[in-house]
Amino acid sequence: MTPKQYILLVVLGLLLLALVTTLIQKNRIRIRYSILWVAISLFFLTIPLFLNYYIAIGEFIGIINPISLFFFGATIGLFLLSLQFTLALSVAFNQRKATVQQTALLEERIEKLEKQLANQQQNNN
C-alpha cells in the first residue's frame, strides 16, 4: 500500500466515525446498528497498524494485493449487512402491520362504545 492509500483509509475512517457519532448524538440511529458502523470506522483507522497480518491473510487465500483483499472483504461484509437489514426490515414490516391492524380494530371499537355511551346517557336524561 502506498502512503496516499493509508491516508485515504484513515481519513475515510475518521469521517465515518464523525458521521456515526453525530447520528448517535441526534438520536437518528439505534445503538445496536451504530456499533457495527463504529467497528467499521475503527477497522479503517487501524488498517495501517495491522497491515502485515492482512497481507499474510491475503497470501493465504491467494490475494496478493492488500487493496484487493480489502475490496473482497468489503464485498462479503456488505452482502451480509444487506441480508441482516432485509431481515430487520421484514420484522419491522410485520410489527408495523400488526400495529396498524390493531389500531384500526380498536378505533372502530372505541367509536362503537362511545356511541353506545352517548345513547345510554341520552336515555338516562
Binding site: K97, V100, Q101, A104, L105, E107
Partner: peptide, 12 residues
Amino acid sequence: LLKHCSNMGYGV
C-alpha cells in the same frame, strides 16, 4: 369503517 393509519397495501 376500519381506518389504517398508514398505507399497507391490499393484502394487509
